[in-house]
Amino acid sequence: MTSTEIKPGRTAADDYATIRSTVGVYQIGRPLVRLTGDDRYEFIDRFASRSSEYVDPETVREFVALNDDGTPFAMLLHIEIDDVTWLLPRTEVTAEQLAGYLGQFDADDVTVEVAPEGFAATAFEGPQAWQVAAKFIDFDVSGLVLHGVTEASVEDAGTAFIARVGTTGEYGYVLVSDAPGAAYDAALSAASSVGGSAIGPDGLARVQAEAGQAVYQLDLSTLSVNDADLAWMIDWNRVGEFHGSAQLEPPTVESARLVALVAPAGTTVEPGDTLCAGGVEVGDVAKQTPSANPAEELVIALVQNPFWVPGVPLTGPDGQAFTSVTMPRVIAKSLHVKID
């Protein structure tokens, strides 16, 4: 859930163009978790799909936390700075759900605070996102490498840090502080000076989907780890060691999988609509992503093997013509922009 003040009149297409060409700023409304104490890695390892053993200080990584039955509960960013662990959900989850989930695990010598008072995160993504990040750090922004985390200067903040991590394939940063209003305003101001702006969820969702990260906008409760193409995030050598993992089976080539399909602009489908290959049902629609890219529509579907490879023609219930595609569907401009 992203919350932000959008200028009236801005469309999802405007937001899409902004993220793709300069930088879009948005507040991440999801609850943070703060963990302190020497045993916090042990605590996290009870539910993290990947071990904390080699996590370096001042880095960020991502893992998935599972329910009892092995289905995904939430995807979480794990940020390490100043001997404190911060978890930031990348998928929809409430503070109550998080507290309930984390409450399952013994927390001896670890202090677990869900939604610590006053803290929130702002994100900025796009080929010029580094120009916004530069406003918050004292050293050369090119020195903040991918998945690096460093202290940030935010007016009125007691604690502030910035992580270089994004969701769109373009440059992306997450700024966490206990003065989130000031942080957001400063980010927006910096973004405006390079032609960027505040953005809403639809433009963002479309860019994420085009980068192969549509999972962030899907309802995880309807998908398995394998369906959602999250098997890469599981350390299969640790199965049995983290919550819910005993229920996991590695995917095989026979498994179904989410795939991105494109269709001519204006095509519409509904979640649950069946998709056929040569007249035979082979999958169904999970979600149509927002029509923020005027060139075509992008739909996420759960499709049987082997039809989830690129280049497969599929047909919707009303004859809509789809083709499965390679990710990323749109090459990030950031690939050719050097951070100066």
């Binding site: 098997a231 890469w232 095989t252 991105a260 490879v309």
Partner: peptide, 8 residues
């Protein structure tokens, strides 16, 4: 089988 075809 575990390596994603579509992740960066």
């Amino acid at each position: 089988e575990v390596v994603s075809d579509n992740q960066p």
